[in-house]
């Protein structure tokens, strides 16, 4: 499997990272180097092997249903690049 410029553009878009036209080629090269290298995993026989979901042998803890958090809007908004009237503000979205 090998990624081309188009694939890089597609992934970059999925990841929301602007990659300029002239960077696409070199990025494709870098990604291919890594992907070719990890390709060696195909040598491993994994038939019947369960994929790891957690290295921890424990059950998911569940918390009691109580309101224990929130109610500090100023702190939540404090680091926001833009906020107005208690909202986060972002460039206008057209649906």
């Amino acid at each position: 499997m090998s990624v081309d410029k188009e694939t890089v553009a597609k992934i970059a878009n999925l990841a929301r990272i602007a990659v300029s036209e002239d960077e696409l080629e070199s990025t494709a090269g870098e990604l291919n180097n890594i992907l070719d290298w990890v390709e060696q995993l195909s040598e491993v026989d994994t038939d019947g092997v369960e994929p790891m979901t957690s290295v921890v042998a424990a059950a998911l803890p569940r918390r009691v249903d109580e309101v224990t958090d929130g109610g500090y809007r100023d702190q939540v908004l404090k680091n926001a690049p833009a906020s107005e009237h208690g909202f986060f503000a972002v460039p206008k979205v057209i649906e």
């Binding site: 833009a82 107005e84 009237h85 208690g86 909202f87 986060f88 503000a89 972002v90 460039p91 206008k92 979205v93 057209i94 649906e95």
Partner: peptide, 11 residues
């Protein structure tokens, strides 16, 4: 989307 001419507000 309708609270500000150029911004979308997020709650």
């Amino acid at each position: 989307h309708d609270q500000h001419p150029t911004m979308t507000y997020v709650d």
